[in-house]
Simulated scan of single mutants.
Amino acid sequence: MFSAQGPSLRELAMQALSSVERGYDLLAPKFDHTPFRTPDGILDATADALGSLGPFGEGLDVCCGTGAGMRVLRPLCQGRITGVDFSAGMLAQARKAHPDAEWVRADVRDLPFDEAFDLAVSFGALGHFLPAERPALFSGVYRALRPGGLFAFPIGAPQPITSGWYWALLGFDLAMRARNAVWRPPFVMYYRTCPLHAVRDDLTAAGFTVTTVPLTLLGRREDGSPRYRLVLARRPGTSD
């Protein structure tokens, strides 16, 4: 799963026994050489689906990490593109890789923006928030968008119970819950706490109008349903 340039088992253990922020600070220099970095295929499928909805003005990557989401924002946005994350280590790597973008260190549960962006995206971040924390996250994104602005992120279909991935993800979540029950600070990273129906409900409660589109470039499951959907949460209204 890891290239020769990726973290060692010892480094991963140190990350897992840290807080989320400290863990990602430690992992940042080698993050792009791990499977945790969003694959280019998902980024490209997202950009393709958003292409017909743009162009956009200013763009924001929420929980930007090392800046992989710039691959989506740069061709779609005509104005500035910005990444926000609370890991100083991840932002340092992002600045090196994308010096033309703006980078802001902040807790995304309290975003420091007010009607500043036309498009917001996020990749692989929802598992870092407990369900009770999602309303603050989504409300902050809502405030950060101008009227008519769009918040978009891919979400995978649930794995069937017959799939090995179902049991692998279940086992990971159970291991993380056990770790957090006996070790402080907690490391919040779960794969099964953000099903589409719950995410849709939280986005709607924050004021968004929510639709989804299949990411057809990523294929379909055996039953014909898409492997991934793109959630499109729009802030009602029209920009001046």
Results as ranks from 00 to 15, higher is better:
Asp85Asn: 02
Ala68Val: 08
Gln93Phe: 00
Gly57Asn: 05
Asp61Met: 07
Leu119Thr: 10
Phe117Asp: 09
Pro135Val: 09
Cys64Arg: 03
Cys77Tyr: 07
Ala97Gln: 15
Ala88Asp: 12
Lys96Arg: 14
Ser122Tyr: 11
Arg105Met: 12
His98Lys: 00
Pro112Asn: 08
Gly124Thr: 07
Phe123Cys: 07
Cys63Leu: 05
Glu115Lys: 07
Phe129His: 14
Ala116His: 13
Trp103Ala: 07
Ala92Tyr: 00
Val72Cys: 07
Asp100Glu: 15
Ser122Leu: 10
Trp103Leu: 09
Ala116Ser: 15
Leu73Asn: 05
Asp48Ala: 15
Gly51Leu: 04
Gly83Asp: 00
Gly51Asp: 14
Met90Phe: 00
Ala49Thr: 03
Arg74Ser: 09
Pro75Ala: 04
Asp48Pro: 00
Leu60Asp: 12
Ala68Leu: 09
Pro135Ala: 11
Lys96Ile: 03
Leu76Asp: 12
Leu119Asn: 07
Leu111Trp: 07
Pro99His: 11
Glu115Phe: 04
Ala92Asp: 14
Val84Ser: 03
Gly65Ser: 05
Gly65Thr: 03
Ile81Trp: 00
Leu73Arg: 05
Asp118Val: 04
Pro99Val: 11
Gly79Asn: 11
Phe113Asn: 10
Phe86Lys: 03
Pro135Glu: 13
Val104His: 13
Val62Thr: 09
Gln93Ile: 02
Thr82Lys: 02
Leu91Ile: 02
Thr66Ser: 13
Gly57Tyr: 03
Gly54Lys: 09
Cys77Leu: 06
Gly67Glu: 03
Phe56Gln: 05
Gly65Lys: 05
Lys96Met: 03
Ser122Trp: 08
Leu60Gly: 06
Pro75Cys: 04
Leu53Met: 12
Val121Phe: 03
Ala88Pro: 02
Ser122Ile: 08
Phe56Asn: 12
Pro75Thr: 04
Ala97Leu: 14
Arg109His: 11
Gly65Ala: 05
Thr82Asp: 01
Ala94Tyr: 01
Glu133Asp: 15
Leu76His: 08
His128Phe: 08
Pro135Ile: 09
Ala68Met: 07
Gly67Cys: 07
Ala49Glu: 03
Val72Ser: 06
His98Asn: 13
Glu58Val: 04
Phe129Lys: 12
Ser122Gly: 14
Leu91Gln: 01
Met90Arg: 02
Asp114Ala: 13
Phe113Pro: 13
Arg95Tyr: 01
Lys96Asn: 07
Ala136Gly: 10
Leu130Glu: 15
Cys64Gln: 06
Val62Lys: 05
Arg109Tyr: 00
Thr82Asn: 02
Asp61Cys: 06
Gln78Met: 10
Gly127Arg: 04
Ala88His: 12
Asp48Ile: 08
Leu50Val: 06
Gly69Thr: 04
Pro131Glu: 14
Asp48Met: 05
Val104Pro: 08
Asp114Asn: 13
Ile81Ser: 01
Val62Cys: 09
Glu115Gln: 15
Phe86Asn: 14
Val108Met: 03
Gln78Tyr: 03
Ala94His: 01
Gly124Arg: 08
Pro55Phe: 12
Phe117Trp: 11
Leu130Phe: 11
Gly57Thr: 06
Arg71Ser: 14
Arg80His: 01
Gly57Met: 06
Arg95Glu: 13
Leu130Thr: 13
Asp107Ile: 06
Leu130Ala: 14
Pro75Arg: 06
Ala101Val: 00
Asp114His: 14
Asp118His: 15
Gly69His: 02
Leu137Ala: 13
Trp103Asp: 11
